[in-house]
């Protein structure tokens, strides 16, 4: 039997002629066995778990009130301010904890908007007739070319500088990226014989989508969404850094970075702490995505 190692061949790959005989005869059984739990998934869960826990705790308890400036300015880490204070005398740990919440809100909010709108548009374009597909694709290209920053500024101008404005801007920018990826993935899956087989089995289009298309595009999509999550958190930090995000006293990590940049040499904790948390969050989510892809894919999950 001739094999097809790639289960989702590229869209340009023409249907093989009479016999897709192999160039490499036995690559079929090649993939290494991967039976143990993915270490990436575990590490990612731990990293994300720490941040989520911090954010949850901040809902009920923080060491000081966010506006409390009684601690003295730029104190070094120690007691009573574990991580020290910023240049206005606010407790850094408190800010970091609320910042975790804002980062997660920003990431999740933007992902929710981007994923829902993006997948819907992507599916529509993927299934659309030539004319509608071309129109949607052009629209998406324009949206992708549109700078997120400009979008955010327009959003702030139209509404006000707030976390929700930032999330909306990031989410919309993300929509275009997710939609374009979804469209390509959908087209690729639709070209597979199992879609035709499903249709000739009498399966309706909605069930083809939920039963075959989504499960097959999901692993690639989920990895991409996780990357987008990381980017969204970074984008929110950047927007806050520029003053286009959540206004004070909301302690976004980006704002903390911005406020601490003048004192980076005298009080480095102010930069290092939010920076480390930001990296932890982004790396953690990406690791989870990698791990998820591996466990979601039956061809990777178990091998003979």
């Amino acid at each position: 039997m001739s094999e097809r190692t790639d289960l989702n061949p590229g869209p340009g790959e023409a249907a093989a002629a009479m016999e897709p005989a192999p160039v490499v005869d036995s690559a079929k059984e090649a993939p290494a066995t991967r039976t143990r739990r993915s270490p990436a998934l575990v590490t990612g869960c731990v990293l994300l778990g720490l941040i989520v826990a911090t954010a949850l705790v901040s809902l009920f308890w923080v060491p000081y009130a966010p506006e409390d400036t009684t601690g003295g300015r730029l104190t070094a880490p120690g007691l009573p301010h574990l991580l020290g204070t910023d240049k206005l005398g606010r407790d850094l740990l408190t800010q970091l904890m609320t910042g975790a919440r804002i980062a997660l809100e920003a990431g999740l909010g933007a992902i929710a908007i981007g994923a829902v709108l993006g997948i819907c548009f992507g599916l529509a374009a993927g299934f659309a007739t030539r004319w509608l597909d071309d129109t949607l694709s052009t629209l998406l290209d324009v949206l992708i070319a549109f700078p997120t920053l400009l979008l955010a500024m327009l959003m702030v101008a139209a509404r006000s500088a707030s976390l929700s404005s930032a999330i909306l801007a990031i989410g919309l920018a993300m929509t275009a990226v997710v939609a374009r990826l979804t469209r390509i993935l959908v087209k690729r899956v639709l070209a597979q014989d199992y879609i035709t087989a499903a249709r000739t089995s009498g399966t309706s289009w909605p069930r083809v989508i939920t039963g075959h298309v989504l499960p097959n595009i999901w692993p690639t999509l989920v990895v991409n969404l996780a990357q987008q999550f990381g980017l969204a958190v970074m984008a929110e930090a950047s927007l806050s850094f520029l003053g286009l995000g959540a206004p004070p006293p909301n302690a976004s990590w980006g704002r903390m970075l911005q406020e601490a940049q003048a004192t980076v040499f005298t009080a480095p904790t102010g930069v290092i702490a939010p920076g480390v948390l930001l990296v932890m969050l982004v790396v953690g989510v990406n690791l989870i995505a990698d791990g998820l892809r591996d466990t979601l894919d039956p061809t990777r999950r178990r091998t003979r």
């Binding site: 094999e3 061949p9 014989d193 499960p215 097959n216």
Partner: peptide, 23 residues
């Protein structure tokens, strides 16, 4: 169409692409 699909089924050439890898 329901009667038709019940009466007429199909088999394809490439057994790798004709089965959903995730089912």
């Amino acid at each position: 169409m329901r009667r038709f699909r019940r009466g007429v089924q199909s088999v394809f050439q490439d057994p790798y692409s004709s089965l959903d890898p995730r089912q």
